[in-house]
């Protein structure tokens, strides 16, 4: 059995926006090392909230357990997120989490190479230049390294973002709709590249997407949302995890469509 990297129990996050309350309930969520976890759901179901909590940029309202276990060269280090200071959290983010944003999230004033090396610099990774060259070669970015992101195509930009998220070999890779802005075949390519590279490094990938077909049969596990509407202004989303590559069939989508229940 693989060891867990995320251990969440009874995590509740309530958000209010424009007079509408939204509550995300996580009764239990365990994510294992090297796992490919898909977070699928339509917009507004709490995907991003969950990702923000996992990315440590959003503090949960309450939780009985929120631990991150990192394998530091064979030694297990447990971080209890609730008691960490802001700087320690930033440190974890810099060293152990890779982030792939929807539009790449590349800094426009840096070249592709500088963008990729940025995370390596922040996490003080050694041999960053070689790793950068290796990743660029693997992702077909070698010719693009000295260009500014604005001169790249959408797919190249996302690949650069993947490279930036992977160069420091993080234990966790968070991908927020990484393929939303590219065409379908490219999206599939990028998904495969991300999965394969993460697999080589033993990193867990948590990928948020609204497109179920993109993760179908690929993800090791899938997070599903069950929406209950208490009132017009109060929505609750409860998550559950399904494991196994076959669980994510197309007909499952129906189960996660919002179910409106009378208050």
């Amino acid at each position: 059995m693989k060891s867990p990297i995320y251990l969440l129990q009874d995590v509740i996050k309530k958000r209010s926006k424009g007079g509408v309350d939204f509550t995300l309930l996580v009764p239990e969520l365990t994510i294992f090392r090297g796992e490919f976890l898909a977070v699928v759901g339509p917009s507004g179901c709490g995907k991003s909230t969950l990702l923000d909590i996992l990315a440590l940029v959003l503090a949960p309202g309450s939780c009985t357990r929120f631990d991150i276990d990192i394998d530091l060269e064979g030694e297990l280090k447990r971080y209890e997120v609730g008691v960490l200071s802001e700087n320690e959290i930033a440190g974890i983010r810099g060293r152990h989490i890779g982030y792939v944003l929807q539009n790449g999230g590349l800094l426009p004033f840096l070249t592709v190479r500088e963008n990729i090396l940025l995370t390596a610099t922040i996490s003080k990774t050694k041999g960053a230049l070689d790793k950068c060259a290796g990743l660029a070669d693997r992702l077909g970015l070698t010719d693009q390294l000295d260009k500014k992101p604005q001169h790249l195509s959408g797919g190249q930009r996302q690949r650069a973002a993947v490279a930036r998220a992977l160069i420091h070999h993080p234990a966790i890779i968070l991908a927020d709709e990484p393929t939303a802005a590219v065409d379908y075949p490219t999206a599939l390519d990028i998904r495969d590249e991300l999965k394969e590279l993460a697999h080589q490094m033993g990193s867990a990938v948590i990928m948020v997407t609204h497109d179920h077909s993109l993760v179908e049969g690929v993800a090791d596990a899938e997070v599903q949302f069950t929406l209950t509407r208490k009132s017009l202004t109060d929505t609750r989303a409860t998550i559950s995890v399904q494991r196994g590559r076959t669980v994510c069939k197309a007909e499952d989508k129906k189960r996660i469509t919002p179910q409106v229940q009378p208050a």
Binding site: I92, R93, G94, Y99, L107
Partner: peptide
Amino acid sequence: NILRLLGLLK
């Protein structure tokens, strides 16, 4: 905000 997400301190 990108820099912040990448783990830079405030």
